[in-house]
Amino acid sequence: MYRRLNWTDLWGVFFIAFVLLFGGGQVVQAANTTPKKAYAINAQLPANQVDNALQYWELRLAPNQQQTLNLQLANIGSQPITITVYANNGTTDSNPQIIYDRTAPAVYPKTAVSFASLVQGPRKKQVTLKPSQTTTVSFKIRAPAKQFTGMILGGLYAVADVTTDANATVRSRVAYQRSVVLQGNDINQVKPKLHFGTVKPAVQADNMVLRLATTNPAKMYGEAITTDMQVNRQGDIKRLVHSTSQDGKIAPNSRFDWQFNIHKLPAGNYTMKLVVSGNNVPKQTITRNFTIEGSQVQSVADYLGTNSPGKLAIIIILGILIAILLVGGWVLLYNRARMRNHNK
């Protein structure tokens, strides 16, 4: 008689299949808890910091007063790491959120005073740290010659390549940022003022998006921004797209394209209705008409046609490999059990 395979044998089959498929036939060792490349930053707040509970700079400077901004960097990995730090203007991305990673964009309007214009010396600095080493990167700024209202917003942006494979074609980067808020007169009375231009549909990979031209020329950021957006066919009350968002932030003196996902609408004429509000932004309703062209719909279809079969093929191949390994493992254990009983 042949021995019946028990659950221990079956678990052995699954283990063999998993190791062969994902481990390359080699024993996988436990990973080291210390990452190879990693770092941390800390804003060293000065004595004239307005609010010491914050983890970024909030300063009120006299005209032409100089101030040094010190950012501490620490290598917490097991390999050397090179970190680049920029002193940039605060800008708004398409989400919207306030970011500091763009070195070129100017403030809006151009007559406004930018944080970048106040930096004395280079706005880019780079250091290489050995494991466990710390250092401080410093930037000097000079306040405007005259008093100003509202705020001037900038930030220090640190970025490092943490790729550990020298031959990797895709690089991994880790970035951190710390705000620099320069307070002017009437800081609590100045409010953001949002203005909206035209809306344009655009193709983004396998989706269609709307991009609404938006400006905030005021010297104050918008906080806790919420939106409620819907899309209808022109002349039809049926809602085809609906989305909401919360906790948006808009930089002072900034211009950006506010982006909304509208999925895969067919070609035609549509109306977008957007309701915007925030903690310091009054409620506004924006209505814009737009047209989706047939060529845009085709671009989305072409992208899906190019990428979907490849993904499906990978899934099918993986399924076949798993099935082969499971069957092969079962046959192997079955024959071993048969041979043991034959030799008794």
Rank of each mutant, 00 (worst) to 15 (best):
I152E: 01
V199F: 02
G248S: 07
N232P: 00
V159C: 05
Q177S: 15
T226K: 14
L194C: 09
Y2D: 05
D228C: 01
S117G: 02
L21P: 01
Y56C: 02
S78F: 04
G121M: 05
Y176R: 01
I317Y: 07
L312G: 02
L304Q: 14
N253M: 06
M272T: 12
Y108T: 11
S179H: 04
P201M: 03
T198F: 05
V174D: 02
T244K: 15
W11Y: 11
Q298N: 13
V28H: 10
S254T: 10
N89D: 10
A202N: 12
S243E: 14
I141D: 04
R142M: 12
Y86Q: 09
N64M: 01
Q259K: 14
L153E: 09
P192Y: 07
V181N: 11
Q120A: 10
A175D: 12
F18D: 11
K140T: 15
N335C: 03
V170T: 15
I316P: 00
N253W: 03
Y100A: 08
L73D: 10
V190C: 04
M229P: 02
N185P: 00
G305I: 07
S299D: 12
D186E: 13
A337W: 06
V203T: 13
A224H: 10
P201Y: 05
W7A: 14
Q72S: 13
A160D: 09
A87G: 01
T103E: 12
Q72R: 15
R60G: 04
L332H: 12
A116G: 00
Q65R: 07
L45I: 03
F256E: 08
V170C: 00
V107F: 00
G328S: 08
F115W: 02
N64C: 01
T84Y: 01
A166E: 13
A205C: 00
T33P: 06
Q79W: 07
H195L: 13
V181T: 11
T169Q: 14
Y39D: 08
M339W: 11
P217R: 09
M339Q: 15
K191F: 09
P252S: 08
L274H: 07
R171K: 15
D101L: 02
N89A: 01
G121S: 05
L332R: 12
V327L: 10
A104R: 13
L182W: 05
Q79P: 03
T244H: 03
N188E: 14
A337F: 07
I322N: 08
Y157W: 13
N70Y: 07
V85S: 04
R255L: 04
I317Q: 03
Q72V: 04
I187P: 00
L333N: 04
A87F: 01
R123Q: 09
L321F: 13
M229V: 13
Q126A: 05
K146N: 14
W57V: 02
I16A: 15
K191H: 11
Q29G: 05
L326Y: 07
M339Y: 08
F196C: 09
P109F: 06
D51M: 04
I292L: 12
M339F: 11
W57P: 05
T164Q: 13
V297I: 09
P109S: 11
I286R: 07
T33V: 11
F290E: 09
A168F: 05
L332Q: 07
T34P: 05
Y176S: 12
K140F: 00
A31K: 15
V199D: 06
